[in-house]
């Protein structure tokens, strides 16, 4: 596991003996990561339905504060984590990328819900962005529609495990000259310009959506509009059943 490499190599028995005497052994990486991952402060950024589950996670029953994500900050400058909860539309994408750029390092991103991962149920719309990972790097994808509050807590724990596996020497924000700011797309006449950021995301080779999906008008399944001027068609009366016995002409017995 990536995070276990940061644990100290001291033998477990010796560790517990020392701990009884009040001496804790750890590595610098583990200590640093423990501090960072136990107090991730998310930014208040709910877009759609998943935002309500995020609020429910912050409420008393599921209580995200137990895991350190106590305060939802309103300003991106003060937040560590952006939980993109809800559908990202093309109109909203420049704002999302701008907010991500404004966050200070170290920063993480969780996409919550099917819509921000890949467009979700609205993938075939003309205004839906098929996943925010086209423009910004995402650390944890959390599927669901909407994911339950427990799932969001599990996603947060996965992120914490990922943080546990990071090393100080190799972290991006301590490298020289690194600035994790991504190009903010423009709104063009048909959609976003560019459609995706090739440094961040590449289209999949096995994506056959284009061939399988098309609106009935474009694919030619429907060709004419309904004519409401014509009077409504009366439902056809069921054809009278032929009598079972051809020689018996008497009517069937009447019900009382």
């Amino acid at each position: 596991m990536a995070f276990s490499k940061n644990k100290s190599q001291v033998d477990e028995g010796l560790k517990s003996e020392l701990a009884k005497k009040g001496i804790v052994t750890t590595t610098l990486n583990e200590l640093y990561n423990w501090g960072r991952r136990s107090s991730i402060w998310p930014m208040q950024f709910g877009l759609a339905c998943c935002a309500i589950e995020m609020i429910a996670t912050a409420c008393a029953r599921y209580d995200i504060a137990r895991f350190g994500a106590e305060l939802f900050r309103a300003s991106p400058r003060q937040a560590d984590l952006i939980i993109i909860a809800g559908t990202v539309t093309k109109k909203m994408t420049p704002q999302v990328v701008r907010l991500y750029n404004q966050m200070a390092e170290p920063k993480y991103c969780i996409t919550m819900g099917a819509c921000s991962i890949s467009g979700g149920p609205f993938i075939d719309g003309y205004n839906t962005l098929r996943g925010i990972d086209r423009f910004i790097p995402v650390d944890v994808h959390l599927p669901g529609c909407p994911p339950r509050p427990e799932a969001l807590l599990y996603g947060l724990q996965t992120l914490q495990k990922k943080i546990d596996g990071q090393e100080i020497a190799k972290t991006p924000w301590y490298q020289k000259g690194l600035k994790r700011e991504y190009a903010i797309p423009d709104l063009g006449p048909k959609g976003l310009i560019p459609k995706f950021n090739p440094e961040v995301w590449q289209p999949r080779e096995d994506d056959h959506r284009k061939e399988k999906y098309g609106s009935p008008m474009i694919t030619g399944k429907k060709t004419k509009a309904p004519d409401l001027d014509a009077p409504p068609k009366q439902p056809k009366a069921p054809a009278p059943k032929p009598p079972k016995r051809s020689d018996d002409a008497s009517p069937p017995p009447q019900e009382a």
């Binding site: 877009l47 759609a48 909203m92 205004n127």
Partner: peptide, 14 residues
């Protein structure tokens, strides 16, 4: 408005 325009009406036609 329009930041959450998810084309519900267009999707429903298909």
């Amino acid at each position: 408005m329009g930041y959450l325009h998810r084309n519900h009406e267009q999707i429903a036609e298909n």
